Each structure stands twice: as C-alpha cells, then as structure tokens.
Computed example of a mutant assay.
Amino acid sequence: MRIVFMGTPDFAVPTLSEIVGHGHEVVAVYTRAPAPAGRRGLDLTPSPVHKVAERFGLPVLTPTSLRSNAATETFRGHGADVAVVVAYGMILPPAILEVPRLGCLNLHGSLLPRWRGAAPIQRAIMAGDAETGVAVMKMEAGLDTGPVGVVERIAIGPDMTAGELHDRMMLVGADLMGRALAALERGGLVFTPQPEAGVTYAAKIEKGETRIDWTQPAQVVHDRIRGLSPFPGSWFPMGEPEARVKVLRSTLVAGEGAPGEVLDDQLAIACGTGAVRLLELQKAGKQPVAAASFLNGNAVPPGRRLA
C-alpha cells in the first residue's frame, strides 16, 4: 500500500522500520521539525524518526501546522491509501483525517478506552495497573475515541518502570501495526467502537507530581517512582545546599516508621504505611548509580528523615 507515516520519537521508529520491511511504499514521512540542542541551543537536531527516514531515503516533511488549505493539498498529493500515526505530537485536523481512502491508523499505548491521552504508559504504572497494551485505532476528531481494530495485551511487572514498558510497547506495537496493515490490505481489518464504560484520561505529567510524598502508602510511592522513571523522575531533596535526588528504581519491603525515615543501611525508607527500598538514584548533573554506590558518597544513616 501507499502509506504516509507520521511520528517523531524513538517510540515510533520500530513501526516505521516494520512498514518499510513489509514492502509498503512510504510516500512521505511527517515528523516534528528539528529541535534546538546543545548547551546554547544553537544546533538543530532532527527527530529520531527524521533520522531513520533519511537513512531509508524517504521524503521527510516537517510542517509546523496541518490546518491550512495548503497543508491539506500537500497531504492529498501523496495519494496515500492510509496514514499511520505513532506519537507524532501534532493534532490531525478533520480535513487531513478524511484524505486517505482507508483512513488514518494510530498506534496507542494502552487498552482503550482506558488511558486515552498524552501519558498512557506513565499513568498505567502510576495507577498500579497489572496489565496494559497497545491498540491500533482508526482516528477520528475526538481524543483517542476512534474504533479499535486490533490490540495486544502486555503484563506490567511489579517493579517494571515506564522506560522498560515503553521499550516493550514500541516493539510489540510495531509488530501489531504490521499485522493490522496486512489485514487492512486484504479487507480483513474490522474496527469495533470503544465501549462507553471504563474511559480514563492519561493527563500530561506535571512538575508538581514528581516530588516523592513519603506520607503516602508504600505501594503508591513505589508506583509513582517506577511510573516516572527514567523521565522526568521522582525526587526528594537532600544536602546543603538542598539538591534534588531522583529515584529511578525501587521495590517494596517490610518495615514501618515515621514517613521518610531511613530504616536500615540499604536505603529502606518508611512510608505512610509500609516501606520501599531505593535501588537506583541520580544526583543532579550525575549519572544514575545503584544504591550501594550512592551510599559510598552520601551519608544516609538509619534514623535520618528524608524530606
């Protein structure tokens, strides 16, 4: 089929590679414009999808908007059978959605209708979900409201981080989209409307959510830590002057104490109920390290209270 691919981050790269590998004709790749990088922001860095598309020799477009008549006509000129959208980062207006004869397919990182919106991977873990998945949905004007064609379920391990789930999802999702396109091509992809029950929204992560609140139950603290790892990262303040220490990995352990109290010499920390053990930490400007290495350079004795 003739396909327009629309995506930007690493998450979208395996799907683009899968489409090319299946022999489809990718007539255009839409991605976000190169972003400022470097210490002074003077260098412009192409997106991960942009870089891969160029290696494949595919034409790349980086419009700042898709809402003009000119943008619609350019899109129409590709003569695409279908558009595939994976974490593109721009809203597709109705005029664009209506162009491909077989519609626009979106790879979404949740079991719709649960976790519609911007941060489904993080929100699933932060909520303590034991399962999530990826879905191929036919796009419409609403936010992730379109009918679903195929899904693949993914278990969320008790200590799995958002980064680990992201990496698992992007590979499973690429395979799922490949199978969905094959079914679409032979007329066998059936779309089912999403149920009205069970809708939840995965709002964008806000800065105010990232500080660890030790007064919460240990399970809540643990889920927040792993759901925000590796980015933006949960943190607590420590040192003089006070600096942020990110916690990138933790696990639940037995123990009780005042919230934030260090319970042993291996960074078991009391929460509102129960305790968590901090396994991987990162000081500002430093590389992530295991707890043992962190303790070699930072005094965190039992009995101390973390803020």
Rank of each mutant, 00 (worst) to 15 (best):
M1W: 06
I3G: 02
M6Q: 00
M6A: 14
T15A: 15
S17R: 13
I19D: 06
V29L: 07
Y30T: 02
T31K: 09
A35S: 11
A37G: 04
G57Y: 02
P59N: 02
P59E: 12
T62H: 11
T62Q: 06
P63F: 10
L66P: 03
L66W: 01
A71R: 01
T72K: 14
T74E: 15
R76D: 05
A80E: 13
D81K: 06
V84I: 11
V86Y: 07
V86P: 09
Y88F: 15
M90P: 00
M90A: 13
I91Y: 09
P93K: 03
I96M: 11
E98C: 05
P100S: 00
G103Q: 04
C104R: 07
L105P: 00
N106S: 06
L112C: 06
W115N: 01
R116Y: 10
G117P: 08
P120L: 06
R123G: 06
A124N: 04
A130K: 08
V136M: 09
V136S: 04
G142A: 13
L143C: 02
M160V: 07
A174P: 07
A174H: 13
M177V: 14
A180V: 04
G188I: 00
P193V: 15
V199A: 07
A202D: 03
A203K: 11
G208D: 12
T210M: 14
R224W: 07
L228E: 05
F231P: 00
M238S: 02
V247Y: 12
L248Q: 05
S250L: 06
L252P: 10
V253C: 06
A254M: 10
G255H: 11
D265T: 10
Q266P: 04
A270Q: 12
G274K: 10
L278S: 01
L279G: 02
E280T: 12
G285Y: 08
G285M: 04
G285H: 04
P288M: 06
A292S: 14
A292R: 12
L295C: 03
G297T: 14
P301E: 02
L306P: 14
L306M: 11
